[in-house]
Design a protein around this nucleic acid. Sequence first.
DNA 1: CTCACTTTGTGCATCGGTTCACAAAGGGAC
DNA 2: GTCCCTTTGTGAACCGATGCACAAAGTGAG
Lengths: 235, 235
Amino acid sequence: MIRRLSQARERGIPEATVARLPLYLRALNGMAERGLATVSSEDLAVAAGVNSAKLRKDLSHLGSYGTRGVGYDVEYLIYQISRELGLTQDWAVAIVGVGNLGRALANYGGFVSRGFRVAALLDADPEVVGDRIAGLNVEHIDELEAVIRRRGVSIVVLATPAAAAQQVADRVVAAGITSILNFAPVVLSVPEGVDIRKVDLSIELQILAFHEQRKTDRMTGGPAMAEEWPEAVDL
Amino acid sequence: MIRRLSQARERGIPEATVARLPLYLRALNGMAERGLATVSSEDLAVAAGVNSAKLRKDLSHLGSYGTRGVGYDVEYLIYQISRELGLTQDWAVAIVGVGNLGRALANYGGFVSRGFRVAALLDADPEVVGDRIAGLNVEHIDELEAVIRRRGVSIVVLATPAAAAQQVADRVVAAGITSILNFAPVVLSVPEGVDIRKVDLSIELQILAFHEQRKTDRMTGGPAMAEEWPEAVDL
DNA sequence: CTCACTTTGTGCATCGGTTCACAAAGGGAC
DNA sequence: GTCCCTTTGTGAACCGATGCACAAAGTGAG
């Protein structure tokens, strides 16, 4: 009984689905550790914190890997999702900017866990160049292009100050990198075909503050009624 | 000419809009520093990296704050967005878990910048309790409830190991917190009405890897043709 | 004042994503 | 084999968000 592949898998998995696959993968790994052999969409959905219909539709984009009346084989599904996400290969990651955040990232265990390997640390500050962090030598930013080439880096993490981020981004793009994870609080402009993902702590906090304000407003009897603005503002 | 408020502002700004307001705010602050008095939706949209129609629709949810033929008054718009996001008040934030990441967050400047103040650091490890980080004393997690109450903390940042996150979340929720920023790689379950935002480094990397794989697949002539799975997998 | 020009605010078509609800498929008992 | 139970995979309705395109509103020149 050879399993047929993917009438449903022409090309193009919805972006929203891709963003959830890592979540399913994590939940499945937990289940595999606990020795579960199969899991239903309902159980997996609960573990991942999503609706079960959504989960099934997501998985159906990868192919038809479940068994009706039974569920999904945990190990097999782990393999399929891993392969789809490209985690069966090894990705070399370079971290640029070894300040507090860069250091934290370099030492972050979960980073390395699945398929990713921190292959280089770079910084512009001669004070930190040469330091040994998480078993790696911090190299000078001048070496950027050479290091990327030599170590086969394909994903770059930007943890530089905001002012330096665009400049570094230009250089890594010129060096052939097409995947960037940006922690600097700036909107980077890059050519078509380069993927940027942005993690912005202060934006997350501001979104929380918005909702928190709404909640406390509601408690104290609606928002400030007459929403005047202070005279500090000159129009 | 007193400006009328918000026929368009009944209540309820779309979530997608809320998520972009901080972006606009950052772009506007940059413009204010450079001394610009007014800005068109087109220019602001470019600076924030969005479509100008979207920008105008977003701003229209706050009220009608532009002037046709002219644009938006930079300072006035900064004030309005800040007020809407709740940044005109001061938010006390507690960081739980003072490992590499917690330290980085405590020292992160952009954190404090607008309206947010790190008011407490907590950890379970007696080794780090008592340390002084970013001008704050690290307190023991046993003090959690007391510290939250005493310092008026309303937002909690979780930077604990995955295994501890749910337990801490339960405690802070019990202590009345309704806004949590979670860096631990777990799906937290919390009661209705509690807002959780999740930042997950490894998920971001996995999404990048997915797209990167697609790109390199395309270069090397399509995805691995016969997608067999290794015999390692037992069905 | 009128006219030409700029830029906002929004109606409308469209799109992607979510959810419901159910037919189809498989397993197991007998 | 038949029947019943479980669970998948998906059609279809729905919902929110996006982007086009334009009327309405304001500025400034003459």
